[in-house]
Design a protein around this nucleic acid. Sequence first.
DNA 1: TTGTAAGCGTTATCAC
DNA 2: GTGATAACGCTTACAA
Lengths: 335, 335
Amino acid sequence: MKISMKEVAKQAGVSEATVSLALNNRPGVNPQTQKRIQELAKSMGYIPSITAQTLAKQKSGLVGFILPNTSISTYSMLVQLIEEALRLRGYKMIFVTSENSVEYEKEMIEQFVSFRTEGVIIYPIVQANPDPSYVNILNQYKIPFVFLGGYYKGIEASFVMSDYYTALYDATKHLYERGDRHFYYMGGCRTIVSNTMRYQGMRDYLHSQGIDITPQAYLELPVPDYDNAYKACNQLLDSKATVDSIITANDFVGLAVYNSVIEHGFRVPRDISIITFNRQVPEGISKISLTYIEQFIKQQADIALEYLFLQMSGEKEIKKTYLNTELIIRESTIL
Amino acid sequence: MKISMKEVAKQAGVSEATVSLALNNRPGVNPQTQKRIQELAKSMGYIPSITAQTLAKQKSGLVGFILPNTSISTYSMLVQLIEEALRLRGYKMIFVTSENSVEYEKEMIEQFVSFRTEGVIIYPIVQANPDPSYVNILNQYKIPFVFLGGYYKGIEASFVMSDYYTALYDATKHLYERGDRHFYYMGGCRTIVSNTMRYQGMRDYLHSQGIDITPQAYLELPVPDYDNAYKACNQLLDSKATVDSIITANDFVGLAVYNSVIEHGFRVPRDISIITFNRQVPEGISKISLTYIEQFIKQQADIALEYLFLQMSGEKEIKKTYLNTELIIRESTIL
DNA sequence: TTGTAAGCGTTATCAC
DNA sequence: GTGATAACGCTTACAA
């Protein structure tokens, strides 16, 4: 049977108030009584209704976390890291994915409001978002929130993300110093902040060396996956463009590029070099190990949480962190 | 400001009851009033408290889904499929991972009770579970549940899973007919149902051909990942055992085996053939494309949901489905 | 130390 | 058609 506090109270021969106090280890209840009630409740299989608790306490103990999806290993690491950190702080995570859709993200954020979460962490969708103002519903309900992995222009909130600008700046430098002069970046939607930053990092380093690139150097994929990348790279190479290096958004894209490059009769890295983000295919499995840009996921999770808890404790100041990345040299750029 | 129904009612100059009826499109309210209230509520940014609704309605509209983790692509597909199907039926999914730990799964199931979910789908942990009786708390709270991808012995509930027995039976047959005679299976915890089934399928086919294997043919990995598999396979091959084929739990294991085999101077598939489950590394990326056993994930999700909704609508009968799999031949077993 | 009672934000049952 | 009001299961003053 469904057990409620009333049942426990009746069985114990005390009032509901006493049961509540006893079960929550609150002072002011006889240790004997407390023990008796706790044991009774346990033996009855009583599990309190979070719903009722939330309503009564006006605190849900919930923190919402929204991610574009869960299929990228970076993302699923974040879920685990954040869930654990929240649990240690006595919060429960309520986790949803936006499926990379604006509408869906909006809905999910409203759902967070509906659940009266006490804080929200948003990993922004990585597709174009023309008007992210729906996020402000969180402000209306006084629910603190932070961005992780990016942010929306026009929404004032703390955020932490990789310093994609410097990452691309440095990666480009590495390749330039190898002698490469013709550069491409291949990835997803170019208008989102993190991708704009990448383009600019590449552009600015090259500009400093007297090379000016055009937006065509950004090869935009509808979805940054193997098939799209393979097609796009074939098209690029078929066009007889001069290509020295291609930097890619993730290693499925990077490995598609590798296959395409090889099939066009070029060698990697002798003719064309490849650098990737977000390596998730373990070394040893793929045909080539790609030089990659490592992002520090755990640190990002930690900082996001730190900022969130700051906001939750009343802090008003907006904090922004661009986190360092590290270039890990592998076969695809070694001379 | 936080808006509650009271505010909306006040602004609209009607009672809360009317607001409730209007917002929920219930009969018995003047269409004009209804429209006025709906627009007002929207303009005020009112979002109802699910908590209060749940308490009042005694229905949460929630279905719990628990998965060992989210890093396997099979799993993340399931999350999406199930979430969508539930949404279409007017339910919200509350999704958690068990981190493959008994204690954690227990906790999460209690959490589902605590949220008063109306149904639960359990993908059992894929490590040994000595006593899964904690699942029965769901029965006590009259929360229907089904298993997906496996089940726990001793817990009576509907389930759907791949027919691992036949999968291995047929895979072994395929290899036997190629001429292989010395078989191994490499995967995770051998005591869980789905792995026991695999072993038995392999054993029984071989027995039918007059070959008797011992439990040593099951190479049990602490965790079925690349590193463990690589080590285990090295050990096997170093031992000079005769090995004709190795069937593996997933393609990280399969590709680790491939590397180990190659490094020991054998050829695939001429000397040793490999079959895997749960391929997730796209073809074209890995050094070799592995013959694999395809599981029909969407069908499993559909059936699990069907069984769950049957139970939720009062059906008592327990249904069990072992779903067909398909052997997809690739390089690693082609002669 | 324990019990009584109000209140959290909704819904649902009645009167009106 | 609409408005009181009880109820949902719990917490939390405050009273006893």
